[in-house]
Design a protein around this nucleic acid. Structure first.
Lengths: 196, 196
DNA sequence: TATCTTTGTTAGCGAACACTAACTAACAAT
DNA sequence: ATTGTTAGTTAGTGTTCGCTAACAAAGATA
């Protein structure tokens, strides 16, 4: 398992904050070093290139997310709907607590200049898709969800709706209530697919 | 009304194509000039700065979109659902015909370095939101859509779902069938909200 | 005590960036 | 015929970029 030193984490967090506030174009080694209070070459003691910083922070957040979601504990009699509620509640709460992360992992377009980086962002998106579609398929088999619409389409609607809530929250400068708005959308979709 | 010379349009199209293929980081005046077969200073005869090229192309596509959507003709007995189908069918067909546009108008994050530019992208997004929410509200008043979920939430679900389809199409390198996939998602949502 | 490793520094490299100065050829207007 | 405008050129500006060479201080290790 990959591990990171305290200094590496400090660098990755600072880089994320800069991207969040000023965009990827403003993330330069000079700015980043100044944020931390180090000289530019000092950063190269901890990462061998600027691209490695970006790749590492994506890996870092992906790992963190996997561990957190795996750690969500559910009672044995939990419904499929409640499982979805728990997953997205955890996701949205994390985003609200650390808004800068969102600007990095939701922004495939900013890494368009490098295949390795954009693939990593796609990987994060795929992970969420797989998580949701598994839930929908199981819920349909168990007759908890209707089968009027196929699982893949429902998954697209759910992940798309959630992303849209996050995007609006970003545009509002994180002023809207992400968790509340997100749960309203999820509840709306569930209301349409859950059998009573 | 703003108008653009042939040369300006050529520059804006080339800039859009470059962003689409290689990302905003690769859009330099040097590259752009080479694409068109001109020298760098020649571009400054047509736009006073690089930022003005970007702002102009966003305006150009926004204007084009407004005109196209306004031009969609509907019979007097068209249902609200059919109006939505017509709007998104037109949108998706346009995106398939000119894929590069999508990389520009769907990517608020790449313009994060400039408020004027990111506001313009938000404006395009808002336009779609207003269009959809008006349809939903009217459809609910006319008892064509159910009122189980409020119009704002449904709008978020629809626009989010459509964006997700477009995003997947982009990630698939425009290989998936955008119009078909998009209409399946829209049909799925309509199936849930339309009264029979 | 002597040496090695770690983590920082200052100074500076070549390349690329957006943009400008100065000039020119083609053409339109008076 | 003269003049002005348009749209292009070559050459070069200062700045910033990612990154490196060379060196230094501190602590761990032998």
């Amino acid at each position: 398992m990959k591990e990171y030193t305290d200094r590496q984490i400090e660098i990755m967090e600072a880089a994320t904050a800069r991207i969040d506030q000023f965009g990827i174009q403003n993330l330069t080694i000079k700015n980043l070093a100044a944020d931390i209070g180090l000289s530019e070459p000092a950063l190269y003691r901890h990462f061998k290139s600027k691209n490695e910083i970006l790749l590492s922070l994506l890996n870092y957040f992906l790992l963190e997310m996997k561990i957190r979601i795996k750690g969500i504990s559910l009672g044995s009699d939990t419904t499929a709907g409640d499982e979805l509620r728990a997953i997205f509640n955890s996701q949205l709460k994390t985003f609200m607590a650390r808004p800068a992360i969102v600007s990095v992992i939701f922004a495939e377009s900013i890494f368009h200049f490098d295949k390795t980086l954009s693939n990593k962002v796609s990987e994060i998106m795929n992970m969420m898709h797989e998580l949701v579609i598994a839930n929908i398929q199981k819920g349909q088999e168990d007759e908890q969800y209707g089968k009027l619409i196929n699982a893949s389409t429902i998954t697209t609607i759910i992940t798309g709706g959630m992303r849209m809530v996050v995007l609006k929250w970003k545009i509002s400068s994180n002023k809207s209530n992400l968790v509340k708005d997100g749960m309203v959308v999820l509840e709306g979709i569930l209301k349409m697919i859950e059998k009573k």
